[in-house]
C-alpha cells in the first residue's frame, strides 16, 4: 500500500532519531557514566543523587511554574487582543503586525532584549527614576523570588501575538447567525464571548496550548540569554540543568537521569491531557 510506504521514511527517522535517542538516554541514566558514556550498571544511584540536589528541585519546580504561567498568560492576553481586534477597529492590520512580529525572533534575541530592558541599573527602573520618580522599583530580574516572572513577561511578549492571530482567525470563522441570534435574545456581548463563542472555539484553543507547551520545553535559550539561570539558580530549568551537566560538568549519567525524569513528566502530562480530552468527548 502506497500510503504506508510513504510514511516509512518519517517513521524510520523518528524511530531512530527520537526513540533511539530516548532509549539511549534512559539506558545511560542507569549507569555510572561521567565524562564519556560507560555502560556500567549503577542502579538508581544517579536518581538518588539527583533528588539530593537542591538545584534540581528548583529547576523542576520552575518548569511547572514557568510553564503554567506562560501558557495561561499568553492565552489570556492573546484572546483579549483577538477579541479587541474583532470590534471593527481602525488600523487593525498595523496592530496585528505589531502584535505578531516577536514570534519571528529567536528566544535568544527575545531574552537579550528583555534582559536589557528590565535590568535595574540600565533599563526601565533607572529611566523612570531619572524622570523624578525616585522610589520607583522594578528589580524583579535581580530578585531570586521574582526573576522567574520576568521570564514569563518575555515569553508572553514572544507568544501572545501568535495566540492572537490564531484566535482572531477563529473568531472570524464564527457564523454570523450565532451573533444575530444572541442579539435577538438581548445577550450582552461579553456574555456571548464567555458563554458561547469561546467554548465553540475550544479546538482552536487546544492548538494554541499545544504550540505554547512546545515552547515551554524550548525555553532553555530564553533562560540562558536572559538570566543565565540566576540570580543564584532561581530561574534554572530542567533543560539547562541537563545541558550544564552534559557538557560542562562532564556528568552524562546525572544529566541523563534528569532528562529521563523530564521526559517521563512530559509523557505523563500528555497522557493526562489526552485522557481528559477523551473523557469530555465521552460525556
Amino acid at each position: 500500500m502506497m500510503a504506508r510506504f510513504a510514511l516509512v521514511p518519517s517513521i524510520l527517522l523518528c524511530a531512530i532519531g527520537f526513540y533511539g535517542a530516548m532509549l539511549w538516554t534512559v539506558v545511560i541514566s542507569f549507569t555510572s557514566s561521567t565524562i564519556t558514556p560507560r555502560y556500567e550498571f549503577a542502579g538508581l544511584a544517579q536518581y538518588v543523587r539527583l533528588f539530593t540536589m537542591d538545584r534540581w528541585h528548583v529547576a523542576y519546580t520552575n518548569m511547572f511554574v514557568f510553564g503554567a504561567l506562560y501558557i495561561a498568560c499568553s492565552l489570556i492576553f492573546g484572546v483579549l487582543l483577538a477579541i479587541a481586534l474583532d470590534q471593527s477597529i481602525r488600523g487593525r492590520n498595523l496592530l496585528q503586525t505589531i502584535f505578531l512580529y516577536p514570534i519571528a525572533l529567536s528566544f535568544i534575541v527575545t531574552g537579550l532584549a528583555w534582559q536589557w530592558l528590565l535590568n535595574p541599573t540600565t533599563g526601565l527602573q533607572n529611566y523612570v527614576r531619572g524622570l523624578g520618580f525616585e522610589s520607583f522599583a522594578f528589580d524583579w530580574l535581580s530578585s531570586p523570588d521574582r526573576a522567574v516572572y520576568t521570564l514569563v513577561i518575555a515569553g508572553v511578549w514572544h507568544a501572545a501575538g501568535l495566540v492572537m492571530a490564531i484566535m482572531y482567525a477563529g473568531l472570524g470563522s464564527v457564523d454570523g447567525e450565532i451573533w444575530r441570534a444572541g442579539r435577538v435574545d438581548g445577550i450582552p456581548r461579553t456574555t456571548m464571548y464567555r458563554r458561547i463563542i469561546l467554548p465553540m472555539l475550544k479546538p482552536v484553543i487546544i492548538v494554541c496550548v499545544v504550540l505554547l507547551s512546545m515552547d515551554v520545553i524550548k525555553s532553555y535559550e530564553l533562560v540562558v540569554a536572559m538570566t543565565g539561570g540566576g540570580p543564584g539558580y532561581s530561574t534554572d530549568l530542567p533543560a539547562k540543568f541537563v545541558v550544564d551537566n552534559l557538557f560542562t560538568r562532564t556528568n552524562i549519567g546525572l544529566a541523563s537521569a534528569a532528562a529521563t525524569l523530564m521526559l517521563a513528566s512530559i509523557i505523563v502530562l500528555l497522557l493526562l491531557f489526552g485522557w481528559l480530552q477523551k473523557e469530555r468527548v465521552a460525556r
Binding site: 510514511l7 518519517s10 517513521i11 523518528c14 531512530i16 532519531g17 527520537f18 533511539g20 535517542a21 530516548m22 539511549w24 538516554t25 507547551s213 512546545m214 520545553i217 524550548k218 532553555y220 530542567p238 533543560a239 541537563v242 545541558v243 552534559l246 552524562i252 532528562a259 523530564m262 521526559l263 512530559i266 509523557i267 500528555l270 489526552g274
Partner: peptide, 23 residues
C-alpha cells in the same frame, strides 16, 4: 502514529544532541 510522533515535539533537543551526533 501521530501521537508517537508528537511526543518528539516535546523533547528538548539538547537532550538528544549526543546520541544524534553518534548516529
Amino acid at each position: 502514529l501521530l501521537s508517537a510522533l508528537m511526543v518528539g515535539a516535546f523533547i528538548p533537543y539538547q537532550v538528544m544532541i549526543y546520541p544524534l551526533v553518534r548516529m
